[in-house]
Amino acid sequence: MDFDKEVDAKNLNCPLPILRCKKGLNDLQANQVLKIMATDPGSVKDFEAFCKQTGHTLLQLDQTDKVFTFYIKKRNDAL
């Protein structure tokens, strides 16, 4: 999947993956895609909750071995 920015949040625990994700999204324009990788098993539920509450779109979630890779599209009316 194409993306505009990549953030590595592997080996970080709650809430750091979400904080890194937010920081990464801040650098993007509306509709651009952030790829972020995490190993925290809690991040799956947390990223879903994050997107639901902020209006960004979780396009895809890949899981390989112990790494979760999220593709998140920045919301359109982003501040």
């Binding site: 809430p15 979400i18 994050f50 509450q53």
Partner: peptide
């Protein structure tokens, strides 16, 4: 600090 930083990330 966890709750505050996370809530801030959630706008």
């Amino acid at each position: 600090f966890i709750l505050a930083s996370t809530a801030a990330a959630l706008d």
